[in-house]
Design a binder for these strands. Structure first.
Lengths: 178, 178
DNA sequence: TAGTTTGTACAGTAAAAACTGTACGAACTG
DNA sequence: CAGTTCGTACAGTTTTTACTGTACAAACTA
């Protein structure tokens, strides 16, 4: 009775988290698992999760792997049980930072290399004598755009750095200072 | 021949953009459309997009709507054509900011209200005389967690503000200053 | 050693999302 | 006014993604 009231209050938050977690590239059911772990005082085993969420153990295994990759969950050891135990990372600031470093940074690199490669090709093209002026004009515009894009990704990389080093908290402090 | 070389260089960048755009919650084909528009010197009509990407006009219509909602594309007017014309937002810094304000901010609000509602319920529960100590202990832990969560979302909201106001560029300047 | 238990790979199924074609309202044209 | 053209709602289809059950390797137990 009292317990159910607490559960209901938890449920609401878990459900909201799980629905909004798509911004992190996380599906609702993985989000729900994270929410469950977040409110759990003690680490959980795959079987307990399976039991609690009414899903297959296989799903729990892959969901947990997802969360581990994002560092939103960690494997912990607890004596007695032979089973793996998992608990949620509770520091959401840290989670936010990890999200950017694990998901955004690789993407930044990929974009930069693609742009640089194409820039080289276009610059080569621009030196061609017989290329029609029409194409050359387009190529010149592309060069401008690609430089701007490069500049953006450089900025984004520096932004992620400021998350990772914690510099961001100078501008936006963790605790409201008013 | 020369044109094909330029196209190939563009294609690479477009493909990379479209693949990495899932971080923005954008599907590859919508990303490809954005890439196409980005390199296009003049605004395009739905029919031109359809032609270029070999997809249905319906898809173009919904994809463009997606991009409009994210402010990654804008509708422009051009005399002569009766058709709607669309062009890509070229300032990616702005796009980044818009992404956070349109997608993250609503999510922040939702989370905050859910947490506040649940906090109230739990605080009510904590005043119950006959509630078992076990439940009360869990409830007290939850209150702590929810306050931390609230603090995180407050921080996230202030971070988004710093994007929107441009304050972020004080900490991470657009142009590398070395 | 043989017998459990645990986690996950893999193949198959169920659910969700993306995409298409048709149909139609609204806005133009003559 | 009838006749086009344009964009999109909607239903149906295809493709993708999520999830499950089986099977098996690795690690433990007696």
């Amino acid at each position: 009775m009292y317990e159910e009231r607490l559960d209901k209050a938890r449920e609401r938050v878990i459900e909201t988290i799980s629905q909004n977690m798509n911004l992190y590239g996380i599906t609702p059911s993985v989000g729900r698992l994270y929410g469950l772990l977040y409110f759990q005082a003690v680490p959980m085993t795959l079987d307990e999760m399976k039991e609690e969420l009414g899903m297959s153990k296989t799903s729990m295994s892959t969901s947990v792997r997802n969360l581990l990759e994002l560092k939103m969950v960690e494997k912990v050891w607890r004596k007695g049980s032979r089973k793996d135990q998992y608990q949620a990372e509770e520091d959401w600031h840290q989670t936010f930072v990890d999200l950017f470093t694990t998901k955004w940074r690789p993407s930044i690199s990929m974009n930069i290399s693609a742009i640089e490669k194409s820039l080289k090709e276009i610059n080569l093209l621009l030196e061609e004598e017989n290329a029609p002026e029409e194409v050359l004009a387009a190529a010149r515009e592309d060069v401008t755009k690609l430089h701007e894009a490069l500049n953006y990704y450089d900025w984004l990389g520096r932004l992620v750095n400021s998350f990772e080093t914690g510099e961001i908290y100078q501008l936006v402090p963790k605790e409201r200072n008013s």
